[in-house]
């Protein structure tokens, strides 16, 4: 697996990439809150939020195809909501059909709920993707440290980031070995047992690796802190970007 699997486009060169990570975290998370707190009937506001976010993406030179593809993860949940729309009985009926004795009716409030979750979850997902695709993982963690995130968790996450690639590679090798031995065609009982064994082997290998990593780090003087050379600087561009984003979001929200 390539090491840029997590923050693939974080090394691009654009104005958004060079902003202070602390500011970016605050701006993109506030964006999510503004979107979530907007009432679902305000269609124009959602359109404006959409325009704002996509102009930022335009500035950041991120490939649109990548953003759209990653944002498709919200689809299963939205479909699950769509499944329940016929059960919401109250309200004016937008359309109905019957199947045998069963009558299904789709009401306007039901459709509004669907629109609500679809647009809000989609915009939020894209906002977070833009944040993490324009910021390097190490910078993001450092920024979270400035924002008073618990240190144990940041340490766990940074170790996780360093070893995800190694362990996913290990997992994929095990999977290939299983597939090469016709794993998919076994009976379910055997398949579950073998799958369990695969995970157990992965667990033991990960644990033993962790022990070696710990010993290696200890012998190099690890004292529970990560140190980075880079210092964050809050520049005038950051100030301008933060002010513009804040003003636009506020304006969209209150109009």
């Amino acid at each position: 697996m390539h090491h840029y699997f997590l923050d693939k486009y974080a090394a691009l060169n654009s104005i958004i990439h060079h902003l202070d990570p602390r500011l970016k975290i605050i701006v993109f998370i506030s964006y999510v809150f503004f979107v979530i707190l907007t009432p679902p009937t305000e269609f124009i506001k959602f359109f404006l939020y959409f325009l704002l976010l996509f102009s930022v993406i335009g500035l950041s030179k991120l490939p649109l195809k990548f953003i759209l593809k990653r944002s498709a993860v919200v689809i299963p949940f939205v479909l699950f909501v769509a499944l329940f729309i016929p059960f919401l009985k109250e309200g004016e009926i937008a359309g109905s059909y019957s199947y045998g004795n069963l009558n299904f009716a789709v009401t306007y409030p039901g459709l509004l709920i669907l629109f609500n979750v679809l647009v809000k979850s989609w915009l939020s997902v894209i906002s977070m993707l833009t944040l993490t695709s324009t910021t390097k993982f190490a910078d993001l963690l450092k920024a979270f440290e400035y924002l008073k995130f618990p240190k144990v968790m940041l340490l766990v996450i940074s170790f996780m980031y360093r070893y995800i690639f190694v362990i996913v590679d290990e997992a994929m090798r095990l999977k290939t070995a299983g597939d090469a031995r016709n794993f998919g065609n076994l009976k379910l009982k055997h398949r579950i047992e073998i799958f369990g064994n695969i995970i157990a082997v992965l667990f033991i290998r990960s644990y033993e690796r962790a022990e070696r990593v710990y010993a290696a780090m200890l012998s190099r003087g690890f004292d529970g802190n990560f140190r980075t050379i880079k210092e964050f600087k809050f520049s005038n561009i950051d100030l301008v970007f933060g002010a513009i984003m804040g003003l636009i979001l506020m304006n969209i929200f209150v109009i």
């Binding site: 170790f159 996913v168 998919g184 799958f195 690796r209």
Partner: peptide, 24 residues
């Protein structure tokens, strides 16, 4: 703290990897 942190981090990566392994 220090003994557990690398262990927890590597195990987080392990949980992440297992969640990627789908069984049909």
């Amino acid at each position: 703290l220090d003994k557990h942190v690398p262990l927890m981090g590597v195990l987080a990566a392990f949980i992440f990897a297992t969640q990627m392994l789908n069984t049909p």
